[in-house]
Amino acid sequence: MVEPVLLWRRLVGAQVRSQLQYRTSFLLDLFGSFLISFIDFLAVLVIFHNVPQLGVWSVREVALLYALSSISFALTDLLIGHLDQFPQKIRDGNFDILLVRPRGSLFQVVASDFQLRRLGKAMQGVLVLVYALAALHLHWTVGRVAMLVVMIPAGVVIFASVWVIGACLAFWTTDGGEFTNAFTYGGNFMAQYPIDVYASWLRRFLCYLVPLGFVCYFPALYLLGKHDPLGLPRFLQFASPVVAVIAAAVAGTIWRGAVRHYRSAGG
């Protein structure tokens, strides 16, 4: 268990060091990544310029949802966002190289092409989180602190599982990359807002079946001590870690199955 982590640190560490060689270029990229993802929060502010409440949610509460989803998503993007380029590896045959090396194929894909500049995305999420927490005056209990600490990694695992399953599509078509975006970038967009605004069919599909509602909606209800406008059972607010484990198991199984059936185009 320790060995892959150490290896990952060495591989990623080397990439980070090389990216930091061009200091100005790196800082510009970091700022760019910050700027372009911050647009989504401007959209939230534009909405609340027109209404004091979105359903039963105030701007502060939506800011909290936004921040938590953004942070989980941005960390996932930082860790494995380069899976978006995975179809290219299949198309040009470079995936075959990974298969003959003595490490897991998913591990090798994930440990290559790490881009530290994606941290800019997480930074704007943290900024919004600071605003939301300062404005909300939450009553902090041990349970809430624990929830905040646990929900982010759980959210990362859920997003990452979705991303991996999406990347598996490349084993069948290398042009369908954007299909995955609906669930990764689309999932982040969805999770930034309270899910009770969506129609029930869309909720069933994107919040429960693809379990993106567990990234921040349910845990945030607990943090806010808020009555669920959907009236769903309370235990769901604590279910995110379990959902994350199940999602990861499903994603791992699908990846291994896909690799087993993979036939190289040769080259």
């Binding site: 909405i47 979105l54 689309g186 967009f189 969805m190 807002y193 605004v197 969506y198 129609a199 869309l202």
Partner: peptide, 11 residues
């Protein structure tokens, strides 16, 4: 998918 999400949010 994005269209549905944004439509419900704005509605």
């Amino acid at each position: 998918i994005f269209g549905f999400l944004q439509a419900y949010i704005l509605l």
